[in-house]
């Protein structure tokens, strides 16, 4: 009986995470179209519902009502399993994200590793999708996805190592708490290069512009999901945006102090803003990163494929290596102003 209640409770908690997440994905698509439109001096979708607020639902409905075409030469089962394999890790990673102090589904000690694993796992779904479609464009997209993810994972992993060294823990809550004090204690300052490297490889990991080699409409049509229509395509879309939100969440946890208030440690403002729950700060920080995602997309053209590889291997990885050495020294010899107490 107890275990059943426990399981139910967990299922409820999962629902409480996944449902808002799905809705945010829906509205992220709208926000993306709106923001990009604004940067083009357009006004974007504004017809469906008030200010176009029902547009995402219209889009979802349209996708779900469409026929799902399965290419005759494809590998049926893998073809159908691929979208799920992409989406599942994108959602599963949310289990360890602490939304506020104590507000986390699974407070595991290797949280960072778990996230790292989950965010790289979804590339298998992409690979399978590309292979199972039995189409040359899908295959090329999948190959690109594999190469790109493998390259950028290294840089991302090293960026994580920097955070690990600084915080002395892989538990995401501990990492956030290690940044408490005031806004200057957040890791984006002492780990600035790693912050940038993490963000760039995060954009590359989610295959977003300007690193959307995997889709590359003008080169390989739509890459790995070229053969998908209707619900399958919707799942890929959902996964892509869920991953974006995930990367933004991790970025705010690791570098912008998660749920910590930016006014912490400032005498007067701290008390004024004390009533704001941590969750709000966390969501605001995520919103900032998501806006950045869209902003990048509106600004930069797609990289050439070899340049993406060059950037990953010859620029980002050396930078992270150098900065890891710097951070290690700072931590080891307690060099201030950030690393002068043991363990912080």
């Amino acid at each position: 009986m107890d275990t059943i209640m426990n399981l139910l409770w967990i299922a409820l908690k999962i629902l409480a995470i996944v449902l808002p997440l799905t809705i945010s994905v829906a509205y992220l698509t709208l926000a993306e179209r709106k923001v990009i439109a604004y940067m083009h001096s357009r006004i974007g979708p504004n017809r469906v519902g008030f200010l176009g607020l029902l547009q995402p639902f219209a889009d979802v409905l349209k996708l779900l009502l469409k026929e799902m075409v399965i290419p005759s030469q494809s590998n049926r089962y893998l073809f159908l399993a691929a979208p799920v394999l992409v989406l599942a890790p994108a959602l599963a990673a949310w289990a360890v994200i602490p939304f506020s102090k104590g507000l986390v589904l699974a407070n595991i000690n290797a949280g960072l590793l778990y996230i790292f694993m989950m965010s790289s796992l979804s590339v298998y779904g992409v690979l399978i999708a590309g292979w199972a479609s039995n189409s040359k464009y899908a295959m090329l997209g999948a190959l690109r996805a594999a190469a790109q993810t493998v390259s950028y994972e290294i840089a991302m992993g090293f960026a994580f190592v920097g955070v690990l060294l600084a915080a002395g823990s892989m538990n995401l809550q501990t990492i956030v708490l290690a940044q408490s004090g005031n806004i200057l204690h957040w890791y984006f300052l002492p780990l600035l290069p790693l912050f940038f490297v993490y963000w760039i490889s995060g954009v590359a990991e989610t295959n977003r512009h300007p690193f959307d080699m995997v889709e590359g409409e003008s080169e390989i049509v739509a890459g790995f999901h070229v053969e998908y229509a209707g619900a399958g395509f919707a799942l890929f879309f959902l996964a892509e945006y869920a991953n974006m939100i995930l990367i933004s969440a991790v970025a705010s946890l690791l570098f912008l102090g998660g749920w910590l208030s930016p006014f912490e440690g400032i005498p007067l403002l701290e008390n004024v803003f004390a009533f704001v729950p941590g969750l709000v700060w966390f969501v605001l920080k995520m919103g900032f990163f998501l806006f950045l995602y869209i902003w990048l997309r509106a600004t930069f053209p797609r990289y050439r494929y070899d340049q993406v590889m060059r950037l990953g291997w010859k620029v980002l990885i050396p930078i992270t290596l150098i900065w890891i050495v710097v951070v290690s020294f700072a931590v080891k010899f307690n060099i201030g102003p950030w690393f002068n107490q043991a363990g912080v």
């Binding site: 083009h40 902003w295 509106a298 600004t299 930069f300």
Partner: peptide, 19 residues
């Protein structure tokens, strides 16, 4: 250069819309 590009699109974000 990338920041310069971002600055430019950022400015257009607030410009008058021509739709």
């Amino acid at each position: 250069e990338l920041f310069r590009g971002l600055w430019l699109t950022g400015k257009y974000f607030f410009k008058k819309k021509i739709t």
